[in-house]
Design a protein around this nucleic acid. Sequence first.
DNA 1: CGCGAACCGTAACGTACGGTACGGCATAGG
DNA 2: CCTATGCCGTACCGTACGTTACGGTTCGCG
Lengths: 218, 218
Amino acid sequence: MQPAPEIGGGDELTERQKDVLNAVLRLLVEEGDRLTMTAVARRASCSKETLYKWFGDRDGLLTATVQWQASKVRVAPVDRARLDMASLRTSLERYASDWLHVISSDTSVALNRVAVAHAGSDKRDLGAIVLENGRFAMGRRLKPVLLAGREAGLLAFDDEEQAFRTFFGLVARDVQIRLLLGDRLKPTDAEIGRDAAEATRQFLALYGAQTGAAKAGL
Amino acid sequence: MQPAPEIGGGDELTERQKDVLNAVLRLLVEEGDRLTMTAVARRASCSKETLYKWFGDRDGLLTATVQWQASKVRVAPVDRARLDMASLRTSLERYASDWLHVISSDTSVALNRVAVAHAGSDKRDLGAIVLENGRFAMGRRLKPVLLAGREAGLLAFDDEEQAFRTFFGLVARDVQIRLLLGDRLKPTDAEIGRDAAEATRQFLALYGAQTGAAKAGL
DNA sequence: CGCGAACCGTAACGTACGGTACGGCATAGG
DNA sequence: CCTATGCCGTACCGTACGTTACGGTTCGCG
C-alpha cells in the first residue's frame, strides 16, 4: 500500500515517523549525504524494513525529510496594517534577520547541500523542493509587504520580483554560498542583526519612494 | 613516485593530461558527481591505471580538475589608470558581466555542485579550493578597483570588504543558488548586460561619494 | 488466552564502483 | 634487432551500501 508521502506538507505523519525524520535531519547535519540507511535505522532505533515500508526508498526518505523540515519553518507573516516607514523598516529588518538565521543554521546548510548534490539528476527533484520551500516561499512571503509599501507611497518599483531579488542579494550577499562551500562563518546574533539592519537601510535607499527611484536609475 | 598535483595552478600538466581533465569537466557537466572512474577512462580514451598513476585517486582527479578549470578563468585585471566616474562604471559593469557569465555557465554550476557536495567532509577540501578560486579571487580582483575609486574621490566606504560583499550581493542576487538547485535560468547575454548595468547603478547609488554615504546611513 | 499486525534487529543478497593487475602495442633509444 | 617505457583496454578484487528476507517481540483486540 505504498504510502507515497504527500507532496504538500509534513502532516499526515505519525509522531514516530516525525521522530525518524528528525533523526535523519540530525544525521544529515553530522554526516551529510553520506548517511546510510543502516545508520538512520540505528539512530532512529527502527528497522530498515520499516524505513522502506514508510518511505519507499532512500530518495523517498530524503524527500520526506526535506518536506518535514520545510513544514517546520512556517514563519508568521508580517502584519501589514497601519503601514508607515518605521513599521515597514521593522518588518524588513525582522524578515532579513529571520532569514539570515535560517540560511546560516546547520540544518539549512546540510539540507541545501544534499539538494544541490541531487539537483536535476533524480526522479524526485530535491533541488526543486528546496527551491520551492526556500527561495520562492520567501519571495511569496515578502511580496505582499513590498506591494503594501508601494501602495502606501513608501516604496517605488515597477516589478516586485526585481525588487525582491535585490533585497535577496543585499541580505544574503555571499553568506549562503560560502557556508555551502564549507567556509566557517557562523555569524553571531549581533552580527545578523547589524547585517539585517544594514541591508534594509540599503534597500530603502534604493527603493524608498522619495529617495530611491532616481538613484536606481529607473 | 606519486605526483601529488601542485596546489598552485593548472600548469605542469602535459597536453594529454589537460585533455583528460577537460574530459572530466565535460563529464561532470553531464553526470554530476555520479561520474565513475570507468566513465572518465572511456571518455578520455585512457586506462584507469593511467588515471590512478597521474592523479592518485578519485579525489585527486576531481581536485586537479577544479584547479585546472580555475587556472583557465584568469581574467584580465581592470585598468585603473585615469579613473573617472565613467571608466569606474565601465569597469564595474564589465566585472559584473564577466562574473555573471561565469557563474551561470554549465561548467561553473557543475563544479560548484561537486564542491558543495564534498564540502567539509574530505581530506582534500574541494569546497575550500572553489571558494578560494571563486569568491575570494573575485574579491582580491575587485578590491584594487574599489580602493582606487575611493582614492579618486568617487567612492565612499569604510571597509572595502563590506563594500565588495554588497556588490557581490547586488550582482549575484539569487542567481547562483537557483542554478545550483537546478532551476532553469540561463540568462541571455542581453539580460546579463542589463543586470550588470543595474547592479552597478545600484552599487554606485549606495557607495558613490556624493550621493551614497548619507543614504547608506553611515 | 490466542491471533494478527506492526515493528525491531540482523543476516543475507546483489550490484555498483573504487582501486589493482596484467597482457598487448607502440615508440624511443641503444 | 632488442629492450625498456608508457599507455591502452580489460578483467579482476574487495567493499560498501541499498534493498530484501526472516525470526523474535510487543501490543491491541476478540
